[in-house]
Simulated assay, not measured.
Amino acid sequence: MSVPNSSGMDPDGYILSISQDPIQPEFQPLLEDVRASLSQEDLGLDGVYLYGSVARADATPGISDLDLTLVLREPPTAPRLARLEEIRRALEQRHSEVIKVDFDIGSRGNVLAPENLHRWGFWLKHHCRCLWGNDLSLHFERFRPSRDIAVALNADVEQVLAGYLTRIAQTDAEQDRLRLQREASRKIVRATHVLRSEDATTWPQTLEEHVALFVRRYPTMITQVAFFLFEARNPQAQVDNFTTRLQGFMEWMAAQAPKG
């Protein structure tokens, strides 16, 4: 049996899968409500997966998010997406033990498509635990670290961050703006992993590990990335400061990305 180490990998060089420790009792009522809410009607669900801090059993009540991946049997229709959004919002309003409920939605065909191996295959195998339904992670072998995986996981980063900048500029409510800054900061910190060197021997799990690995390669950028780590934990920057820093860091990252 392989003994885990602190590098995010086991001694055989495979990326560690998420813990299967029991879910913290503080979040059990929420997960029971999730199951009841998603099973009260036919939503076309193939499987429901938990990821993030609740899945790792290291979440903090009142501070952490609830992160769920929903895999549907068929590509989602607009009415079905709208209904899932209604359910997500209702769960968020009923449960103060998390500050946000997230649904990442895909379809079975997309998950199992060979071209999505490094994105969906890796995601389900190493970041998710199946709550109920078909566990598609069983279709995949364990993965070794590679830049291809990092790029696949962050293929949407420019689009997502541009969306956050638009929403931040349009919101008048400070609480909503700070929440968006927190989410955007988490995204950009994780996206720094696309700049990992091909011969990197570790795989980050937490935001702090992402920052440490990034700074090891780009030590002169420690102040810039530390700003986003702070905002990911305790957002408080003024809107102009945040958007200027985010746009600048996005441009810098784009300039560093390997060409071709």
Results as ranks from 00 to 15, higher is better:
residue 50 L to G: 10
residue 198 E to K: 05
residue 52 G to W: 01
residue 57 A to M: 04
residue 149 I to P: 10
residue 252 W to Y: 13
residue 166 T to I: 08
residue 92 E to K: 08
residue 5 N to G: 06
residue 148 D to V: 15
residue 118 H to Y: 14
residue 125 K to H: 04
residue 139 H to Q: 09
residue 116 N to D: 11
residue 37 S to K: 06
residue 162 A to N: 09
residue 25 P to S: 12
residue 67 D to N: 13
residue 66 L to A: 15
residue 225 V to Q: 08
residue 194 V to E: 08
residue 96 S to I: 05
residue 143 F to D: 14
residue 21 D to N: 13
residue 118 H to N: 15
residue 130 C to W: 07
residue 87 I to P: 00
residue 57 A to C: 11
residue 168 I to A: 03
residue 68 L to M: 06
residue 234 N to L: 11
residue 166 T to R: 06
residue 97 E to N: 11
residue 27 F to C: 08
residue 119 R to A: 15
residue 76 P to V: 07
residue 1 M to A: 10
residue 15 I to T: 06
residue 162 A to P: 00
residue 66 L to F: 04
residue 18 I to N: 10
residue 36 A to M: 07
residue 77 T to M: 01
residue 86 E to D: 12
residue 202 T to E: 15
residue 182 R to N: 11
residue 166 T to D: 00
residue 48 V to T: 11
residue 233 R to G: 09
residue 166 T to N: 04
residue 247 Q to N: 12
residue 193 H to G: 15
residue 1 M to R: 03
residue 161 L to H: 02
residue 178 L to D: 03
residue 218 Y to N: 12
residue 95 H to S: 02
residue 92 E to T: 11
residue 171 T to W: 00
residue 245 R to I: 11
residue 190 R to P: 12
residue 206 T to V: 08
residue 120 W to S: 14
residue 102 D to N: 12
residue 88 R to Y: 05
residue 252 W to Q: 13
residue 9 M to E: 14
residue 234 N to V: 14
residue 24 Q to C: 14
residue 66 L to W: 04
residue 80 R to D: 01
residue 209 E to K: 05
residue 165 L to E: 12
residue 214 F to S: 08
residue 135 D to N: 12
residue 96 S to R: 11
residue 88 R to V: 05
residue 46 D to V: 12
residue 207 L to E: 05
residue 158 E to A: 15
residue 64 S to M: 09
residue 219 P to R: 07
residue 128 C to L: 06
residue 225 V to Y: 02
residue 197 S to T: 13
residue 123 W to A: 15
residue 136 L to K: 04
residue 185 S to W: 02
residue 248 G to N: 06
residue 74 E to S: 12
residue 38 L to M: 04
residue 69 T to G: 12
residue 231 E to A: 08
residue 120 W to M: 13
residue 49 Y to F: 13
residue 182 R to G: 13
residue 161 L to V: 06
residue 244 T to M: 14
residue 255 A to K: 00
residue 135 D to G: 06
residue 64 S to C: 07
residue 47 G to T: 08
residue 91 L to N: 03
residue 134 N to P: 00
residue 119 R to S: 13
residue 141 E to G: 12
residue 22 P to K: 10
residue 110 N to C: 09
residue 157 V to H: 13
residue 123 W to G: 10
residue 257 A to I: 09
residue 94 R to P: 00
residue 201 T to R: 09
residue 119 R to K: 15
residue 40 Q to F: 00
residue 242 F to M: 06
residue 151 V to F: 07
residue 65 D to A: 08
